[in-house]
C-alpha cells in the first residue's frame, strides 16, 4: 500500500502568486447569485402566486368577481373521499419509496463495492440512460409489458403455454412499478455517493473483529449510507405522491391519486384555487411527515452517540 498521508490543502501552493483582488466571500456570493436569483424567480414566485390563488373563490381569469375565502382549505372536510385519495397517495408514495430504497441501496452497494474503473463508469451511465428518453414514452412502454397478452404474458407463455395472464396493468402495483422505474436512479445515485466514500479498511476492520456480512451491512453500511438513503427518499417521495402521469396511464380506473385530482382541477375543472389549496395541503402533510422522521432519525443517531 502506498503511504498516502493526508495533507490539508492549502489555499495557494507556495511559489504560485496569491490571487489578487476579489475576497473569498464576494466570490462566493457572485457564484451563488445567478442560481439563487433563478430559483427565486422560477420557484418562489409561482409558488407565492399559487398560494394567493388558493384563497380565491374562483380562477382569476373568468368574469366572476374575485373574493378571498378559506373554503378550498375545507375541501378535505366537505369532500371526505379526498382523505381516502390522499391516504392512498401517501401509501403509494411509501411503497414506491421503500422499493426504491431497497433496490437502490443494493444496486449502489454493488456499484460502489464490487465494480471498478470502466465497468463502474459504464454501469453508472446505464443507470442514467432512462433519463435520455421521454418519460411519457417510458411509462407507456410499461402498458405494452403489463397488459393482458402483453410482453410479460408472452414471456410467461413461452415457458408455461397453459398459464393464465399475469398482466397487472391498471392496478396499484402497476403504478408503483412505473414510479419505481422513474425514480430509482435518484436513489441509486444518492446511495452510491454515500457508499463510495466508505473506506475499504473500515469494512475490513469490522470483518477482522469477527463481523459477518449481515452485521457489516446492518451496523456499518446502512448507518453510514443513511444520509444518502434519506436524500434519496425525499427526492423520491415528494414527486411520487404528486405524480399524475404514472397513475393515469398505468392505473386506469384505480389511478385516482392526489396528483391526478390536482391536475384535474387545473386542466379539466378549471378550478385553480381548489387545485392550489389541495397542493398546499399535501405540501403541509409531506412537511409534517419529514419533520416527524427527521426527529426520529436525529434521536436514533443521538442514541447511538
Amino acid at each position: 500500500m502506498p503511504a498516502d498521508i493526508p495533507v490539508a490543502s492549502t489555499g495557494t501552493p507556495s511559489g504560485v502568486p496569491a490571487r489578487r483582488g476579489i475576497p473569498g466571500s464576494v466570490a462566493t456570493i457572485a457564484l451563488l447569485l445567478p442560481s439563487y436569483a433563478w430559483l427565486l424567480l422560477a420557484v418562489f414566485l409561482p409558488l407565492c402566486t399559487m398560494f394567493v390563488f388558493s384563497f380565491m373563490n374562483a380562477t382569476p381569469m373568468g368574469k366572476t368577481p374575485i373574493v378571498f375565502t378559506l373554503k378550498h382549505y375545507q375541501a378535505f372536510y366537505t369532500q371526505p373521499y379526498l382523505v381516502k385519495i390522499a391516504w392512498d397517495s401517501l401509501l403509494m408514495g411509501f411503497w414506491a419509496t421503500l422499493s426504491c430504497a431497497i433496490l437502490g441501496f443494493f444496486a449502489a452497494l454493488a456499484l460502489a463495492r464490487a465494480t471498478t474503473g470502466r465497468v463502474r463508469e459504464t454501469l453508472l451511465i446505464l443507470i442514467l440512460l432512462p433519463f435520455w428518453t421521454n418519460g411519457l414514452v417510458r411509462v407507456f412502454s410499461w402498458t405494452m409489458v403489463l397488459r393482458e397478452g402483453g410482453f410479460l404474458d408472452m414471456l410467461l407463455h413461452s415457458v408455461l403455454p397453459d398459464a393464465g395472464s399475469i398482466g397487472f396493468l391498471y392496478t396499484r402495483p402497476a403504478i408503483v412499478l412505473g414510479l419505481v422505474h422513474g425514480y430509482l436512479p435518484y436513489m441509486i445515485l444518492t446511495c452510491y455517493i454515500a457508499l463510495v466514500t466508505i473506506d475499504d479498511s473500515i469494512l475490513e476492520a469490522a470483518e477482522s473483529l469477527g463481523a459477518r456480512w449481515w452485521t457489516i451491512l446492518g451496523k456499518i453500511l446502512v448507518p453510514l449510507a443513511l444520509p444518502g438513503l434519506t436524500t434519496g427518499a425525499v427526492l423520491t417521495f415528494v414527486p411520487v405522491i404528486g405524480a399524475f402521469m404514472e397513475p393515469r396511464i398505468l392505473g386506469g380506473r384505480v389511478g385516482v391519486t392526489m396528483g391526478t385530482v390536482i391536475e384535474d382541477q387545473f386542466t379539466q375543472a378549471f378550478n385553480w384555487p381548489l387545485g392550489a389549496a389541495l397542493s398546499f395541503t399535501m405540501l403541509a402533510v409531506v412537511l409534517a411527515i419529514f419533520a416527524t422522521f427527521s426527529g426520529v432519525l436525529r434521536r436514533n443517531s443521538g442514541a447511538a452517540a
Binding site: M1, A3, D199, S201, I202, E204, A205, A206, E207, S208, L209, G210, A211, R212, K219, I220, P223, L224, S301, A304
Partner: peptide, 19 residues
C-alpha cells in the same frame, strides 16, 4: 477473516465514524 481472531490496526485508523 472473521473467524481468525486477529487484531488488526490499519494505516487509515479505520474507526467506525458513526460510533
Amino acid at each position: 477473516v472473521w473467524a481468525r481472531n486477529i487484531g488488526m490496526v490499519f494505516q487509515s485508523y479505520a474507526l467506525f465514524p458513526h460510533m
